[in-house]
Design a protein around this nucleic acid. Structure first.
Length: 432
RNA sequence: UCCGGCGUAGCUCAAUUGGUAGAGCGCCCGGCUGUUAACCGGGUGGUUGGAGGUUCGAGUCCUCCCGCCGGAGCCA
């Protein structure tokens, strides 16, 4: 009788097995008890009969509270009446540890604040089980995508000097005698260095924004996947993003259907996400918004409502390209046909999930980049090594950043991005 | 930071115009051999977020503070 996991039960029908895990919920009558049992890989119903265990043992087992840790030995059998179609008929129940007080998360009717105060326990719940396992699979899909295309993983640093997109939203720390350093809000500049060394590179890790954002689309600490490719221009960049996002969605449909179904996701909407994605220029988007009655002028950036209004015109994610250069970061390559706009794109997810990718072709000309750093009022001395990249072997190159939690929230159909990460850091929450 | 909303039992919520603070769940005891958020009977449970004020009387009205939720700006 060997120890197995719930996820492998279907290969052991008719066998006697051992499962190690926890009581999720239980119901009982005088002679039969049902335990909803979990072991981290899934949930299964265990049937405990008084006639099998004996009066005394049955009495103690039927009283086991939620989150008692137990080892079950019993026979696996198919059973129509059991959730999932398979159940365990217990032959023995060994109690590892019984809780000393009632488990605080009972029925699914707790408030969001209560639950996040107990996030360390809440992640045991079924909904969180499915969301966080879906996250695991989406990250697997991202890594697989790059591995299959010969990209090299280049992890960018978390501690950085004063460098990046904007100074106003950086977390500042003391770094021994060096002085102030900052938590990374992007690894892009490092990936640009790496692209000139390895050709095709990507990263995947946490980034930090000291923005007092308090919406369903924002986290203070969030994970980003960035990619950068030497010799890629704007059009190549769009194609890569399109391929990545459709790969992730297809992977989820093929490998995570169990989670999507539990979460009640409308699968049909995800099945439509296949290349090519629609494209609209910034200028066209402004006209579209004006026609819909938005008070917006050429040159303004889009807010959440504007993004949603654009995205709802399409069933797939939509690229918005060629933004005004003043609305975007200093390093973006001007459009040769119109230098007032840059070769960039935002990818907007459908159904109001907002921007999941920000992307651009980067300036590769030394003098132009210096001009832009000055124009944006940035300290040129902080960009010494970044400018070096334009001195030696500079080539056109492009890249993007994918917001991992926004992507998960969209694919899972979540109301709020905070459920898409195990321990979210939001404006007023760093505990647990 | 700004705008709006909400703080009542361990949890989720009720409480007519200002007039005796309640229910369901949880927990404890008992019953039930197929439960699916099991069900049935009994029991347990309160400084109504805090401080002050108005009033014969405040969960309810006023002021300040604290906490949370939603949104805006900013962004992935």
């Amino acid at each position: 009788m060997g120890w197995i996991y719930i996820e492998d039960l279907k290969d052991h029908i008719g066998e006697s097995v051992e499962l190690r895990g926890w009581v999720w919920r239980s119901r009982s009558s005088g002679k039969i008890s049902f335990i909803n049992f979990r072991d981290g890989t899934g949930f299964v119903q265990v049937v405990v009969e008084r006639s099998t265990l004996g009066d005394e043992k049955f009495k103690s087992v039927r009283k086991l509270p939620m989150e008692a840790s137990i080892i079950i030995r019993g026979k696996v059998r198919e059973e129509r009446r059991a959730p999932g179609g398979v159940e365990i008929l217990a032959e023995d129940v060994e109690v590892v540890r019984e809780p000393s007080e009632p488990y605080p998360i009972t029925k699914p009717d707790h408030g969001i604040d209560y639950l996040f105060d107990r996030r360390h326990l809440w992640i045991r719940s079924r909904r969180q089980f499915h969301i966080l396992r879906l996250r695991d699979k989406i990250i697997r899909a991202i890594r697989e995508f790059y591995w299959d295309r010969g990209f090299v993983l280049i992890d960018s640093p978390i501690f950085t000097g004063s460098i990046g997109e904007a100074a106003g939203n950086l977390f500042e720390l003391d770094y021994f005698d060096y002085g102030k350093v900052y938590l990374a809000q992007t690894g892009q500049l490092y990936l640009e260095a790496a692209a000139l060394a390895f050709g095709k590179v990507y990263n995947l890790g946490p980034t930090f924004r000291a923005e007092k954002s308090k919406t369903r689309r924002h986290l203070i600490e969030f994970w980003m996947n960035e990619a950068e490719v030497a010799y890629y221009e704007h059009e190549d960049n769009l194609k890569l993003q399109e391929d990545l996002v459709s790969h992730i969605v297809r992977y989820a449909l093929e490998n995570a259907m169990e989670h999507l179904e539990f979460l009640g996701r409308d699968i049909k909407k995800l099945e439509k996400v296949e290349p090519p994605f629609p494209r609209i220029t910034y200028t066209e988007a402004v006209k579209l918004l004006q026609k819909k009655g938005f008070d917006i002028e050429w040159g303004d950036d889009f807010g959440g409502d504007e993004e949603t209004a654009i995205a709802e015109q399409f069933e797939k994610p939509v690229f918005v390209t060629h933004y005004p250069r003043r609305a975007k970061a200093f390093y973006m390559q001007p459009d040769p046909d119109n230098p007032e706009v840059v070769l960039c794109d935002d990818l907007l997810a459908p159904e109001g999930y907002g921007e999941i990718i920000g992307a651009s072709q980067r300036i590769h000309d030394y003098d132009l980049l210096v001009d832009r750093i000055k124009e944006f009022g940035l300290p040129i001395e902080a960009y010494d090594w970044y400018l070096d990249l334009r001195k030696w072997g500079s080539v056109p190159h492009s890249g993007f950043g994918l917001g991992v939690e926004r992507t998960i929230a969209w694919i899972a159909g979540l109301e709020h991005i905070r459920e898409a990460i195990p321990f979210p850091r939001t404006l007023y929450r760093v505990h647990p």
